[in-house]
Simulated assay, not measured.
Amino acid sequence: MKTERHARILEIINSMDIETQEELAKQLKLKGIDVKQSTLSRDIKELRLTKVLSDNKKYKYASISHKNNVKSDKLIKIFAQTVVNVEKVNNFIVIKTMSGSASAAAEVLDSLNLEGMAGCIAGDNTIFVLMRNDEQAQIMVSKIIKLMND
């Protein structure tokens, strides 16, 4: 049941802009899955869903797109343990890592599949991330700080 519910949640958020847990619960109910808010909240945490800015300037749920959650968890742990500083400069983000760790940390950023990220370049201990605008850059900095503190 849980596996099917998780699959349906991912299917829903990948096919439509879902802004709230209530909207998600409603869409699940339309697919024949009745879920309590507390269960849905746990599902969101287990699936590592995050909110991203959509094209219509509203926040929606999105997932870290990795086929292997174990790999994803390891990457996030590497990211959190190696990033030492993050700074927004206009629509660029400069991320400093421990020496030799930038490429692994950049892999995490790529796996997040966040809207507005044009791309990133990793050196030995520095990552440059180009965002499409200042607002999306600020959102990305907030997400990076959250990953660092998780």
Results as ranks from 00 to 15, higher is better:
59 Y>W: 07
8 R>V: 09
8 R>C: 04
13 I>G: 00
23 E>Q: 15
128 F>D: 02
129 V>P: 05
137 A>K: 08
75 L>K: 05
85 N>C: 01
57 K>M: 08
142 S>Q: 10
39 T>S: 15
11 E>H: 13
110 D>I: 12
37 Q>C: 00
42 R>S: 15
59 Y>T: 10
71 K>M: 10
148 M>E: 06
83 V>S: 02
60 K>P: 00
45 K>W: 00
148 M>G: 09
69 N>E: 14
144 I>E: 08
1 M>K: 09
16 M>C: 13
125 N>T: 08
135 E>P: 03
138 Q>C: 03
29 K>G: 02
85 N>F: 13
110 D>V: 06
20 T>G: 12
24 L>K: 12
29 K>W: 05
96 K>C: 02
96 K>R: 06
135 E>I: 14
10 L>I: 14
2 K>S: 09
39 T>L: 09
78 I>C: 01
43 D>G: 11
100 G>R: 06
129 V>G: 01
33 I>W: 04
4 E>K: 11
135 E>S: 06
41 S>F: 10
97 T>S: 04
83 V>K: 00
38 S>Y: 13
133 N>D: 15
40 L>Q: 10
108 V>T: 15
27 Q>S: 14
127 I>H: 09
65 S>R: 13
86 V>P: 00
101 S>K: 07
50 T>W: 09
55 D>V: 11
114 L>W: 08
107 E>K: 13
144 I>M: 14
41 S>P: 04
57 K>G: 02
88 K>D: 00
67 K>R: 02
129 V>E: 02
148 M>N: 04
23 E>N: 10
76 I>A: 12
41 S>C: 10
